[in-house]
């Protein structure tokens, strides 16, 4: 692994462990990630017994050169964006660990697990109340949104 920056070395390690021992219901597109270490796609299945059982989603992770000091940019992509009070129809996710509460001890795997648990605890499938306005006006990068995390219980 010579010639890699610390950030690349860490991503390489995370990729290996995700490929070897993927968390249940998740699969990283390893070909894509190996081509471009800074852009990963993760296929995710809705957990059994939840409102998302049987659905499949795709999560995109974009890493900057300062990962893991900077959080990755994480969005849902593809045709099926989960209908959830913290997920906008453009794929942006309102989850504090992706911005304010990020820590370099978090990893792709722990972010994925948080997102699965956020989906799993949902009791009613609906978009955030301000979805239409947000999607029209927001920056393409969800990290540029100054989120106010009002409620972590949903």
């Amino acid at each position: 692994m010579a010639g890699l920056s610390p950030s690349e070395r860490r991503l390489q390690k995370e990729l290996m462990s995700l490929m070897k021992e993927p968390p249940p219901g998740m699969e990283v597109d390893s070909d894509k990630a190996e081509q471009n270490l800074n852009l990963w796609t993760i296929h995710m299945k809705g957990a059994e017994g939840t409102l998302y059982d049987g659905e499949e989603f795709q999560l995109q992770f974009k890493f900057g050169p300062k990962y893991p000091f900077d959080s990755p940019e994480v969005t849902f992509i593809g045709n099926n964006i989960p209908v959830h009070p913290h997920v906008y129809s453009n794929g942006h996710i309102c989850l504090s660990i992706l911005t304010d509460d990020w820590s370099p001890a978090l990893s792709v795997q722990s972010v994925c697990l948080s997102i699965v648990s956020m989906l799993s605890s949902c009791k009613e499938k609906k978009r955030p109340p301000d979805n239409t306005f947000y999607v029209k006006t927001c920056n393409k990068n969800p990290k540029k949104t100054k989120w106010w995390y009002h409620d972590d219980s949903v």
Partner: peptide
């Protein structure tokens, strides 16, 4: 119910 209030960040870096 969750309501994520936010405003677009103005400080483009």
């Amino acid at each position: 119910m969750g309501n994520c209030l936010k405003g677009s960040s103005t400080d483009d870096l």
